[in-house]
Simulated scan of single mutants.
Amino acid sequence: MSPGETPAAQEKLAEDTAGSAEVEPIASDSQTFQRAFKDFRVGFGQRELWLSLGWQDIKQRYRRSVLGPFWITIATGVQAAAIGLLYAALLNQPIKDYLPYVAVGIIVWNVINASILEGSDVFIANEGLIKQLPSALSVHVYRLVWRQLLFFAHNMLIYLVVLIAFGVWEKLHWTAIFAIPALGLLFLNAMWVSIVFGIFSTRYRDIAPILGSLTLMLFVLTPVMWNTKSLESQGGQVSERAKLAEIIPTFHYLEIIRAPLLGDDQHLYHWAIVGAITVVGWLVAIFAMKQFRSRVPYWV
């Protein structure tokens, strides 16, 4: 007891101290929507970092190569030509129409495939940076999507060749401009796919091999190598077998991009389905970032 301080004064001081501790509790905001949105905002603000890292990934992959990143274009072009020529003969399809169809399909499919497979590994592959570099978690997602955008840009050289060599430009009309927002939707979906699969694959390592088998199955079921027109009935009506292809979500992503690029008719319901998947996917991604963002560095 301090000199001149009564027991009553000490008791009052103790009550005031306890009250102030109750008024200002220490609460963590690591699992809030505010922190999740802040991660996206801060990550986008660090674009010099992920732009540089994404471009460095491509340079590193083709280091000491004479053609460099253009090996991406050559490999995809050879694959499209081989599949196009083979299946045009097997399905009795005219090469002039079928090969451009397959070429654009493979170019778009490569983005979808990489978004799922590389997206599931996005945080595991960047374990060192996550633990040592003080940056937003979304930086690694931006880096992945930027890298896939660069790959896509290289592969579009194949489309330009097809456009001229097979006379596709003659069928194009003003609706070809819809390919631009369609591509925007594709890469917007690539982001939420990388976030959701990346987070849960980091926690449960069995998810990545499952996704590997799933993407192979989707490639077979999605009209990349085959055309739904070949399933139409003789009367020109779409058969029940052709309608089964619409159950596969990736089919709609292909159609909103491939149709305008080839001058084919476009259907609004493809856009509606892709839009609905985009909204639902981003809601799941935002919730996953809110709930598990702070745990990823401990899981990797």
Score class of each variant (00 low, 15 high):
Met1Ala: 06
Leu85Asp: 13
Lys12Leu: 10
Ala179Ser: 02
Ser230Asp: 09
Pro181Ala: 02
Ala21Phe: 09
Phe70Thr: 11
Ser135Asp: 08
Val279Ile: 15
Pro249Tyr: 12
Trp192Gly: 06
Ile112Asp: 00
Ser30Asp: 02
Gly128His: 05
Asn113Lys: 15
Thr250Met: 03
Asp121Val: 03
Glu24Pro: 01
Asp206Glu: 15
Val161Glu: 02
Thr228Cys: 06
Leu268Glu: 06
Gly43Val: 07
Arg147Glu: 14
Phe197His: 03
Ala288Met: 04
Thr222Arg: 00
Trp271Thr: 09
Lys171Leu: 09
Arg63His: 14
Leu117Arg: 10
Arg295Ser: 07
Gln31Lys: 09
Glu48Trp: 09
Lys38Val: 02
Gly45Phe: 10
Glu48Leu: 04
Gln266Ile: 15
Ala165Phe: 07
Tyr98Gln: 07
Arg47Thr: 02
Val284Met: 13
Leu149Ala: 13
Pro3Asn: 09
Ile256Tyr: 00
Met289Phe: 13
Thr6Asn: 14
Glu48Pro: 04
Trp109His: 03
Ile112Asn: 00
Gly198Leu: 13
Pro181Gln: 04
Leu283Ser: 11
Gln132Ser: 13
Asn189Ile: 00
Gly184Glu: 01
Asp16Leu: 13
Ala81His: 13
Ile83Trp: 11
Ala272Leu: 08
Asn110His: 13
Thr6Phe: 15
Thr278Gly: 01
Gln266Asp: 15
Thr250Val: 05
Asn113Phe: 12
Ala21Trp: 13
Leu160Val: 07
Ala36Val: 05
Glu15Met: 05
Glu15His: 06
Lys290His: 01
Gly236Trp: 09
Val104Lys: 04
Leu172Asn: 00
Pro94Trp: 08
Leu150Ala: 04
Gln34Tyr: 08
Ala18Asn: 11
Ala89Cys: 14
Arg64Met: 12
Leu262Gly: 14
Ala9Gly: 13
Ala276Ile: 13
Ser2Val: 08
Leu49Pro: 01
Trp192Asp: 07
Ile247His: 10
Arg293Pro: 00
Ala88Met: 15
Met156Ile: 10
Gln10Pro: 11
Lys290Leu: 02
Trp169Lys: 04
Leu117Gln: 12
Ala125Glu: 04
Met191Val: 03
Ile195Ser: 06
Ser239Val: 11
Ala153Leu: 01
Leu214Thr: 05
Asp16Val: 12
Leu157Phe: 07
Ser233Ala: 05
Trp192Gln: 11
Glu240Tyr: 15
Ser233Glu: 08
Leu67Phe: 14
Thr278Cys: 01
Tyr253Thr: 00
Leu117Asp: 05
Trp299Thr: 08
Asn92Arg: 12
Pro134Leu: 11
Asn155Gly: 06
Ala259Ser: 15
Ala190Cys: 01
Gln291Leu: 13
Phe178Ser: 06
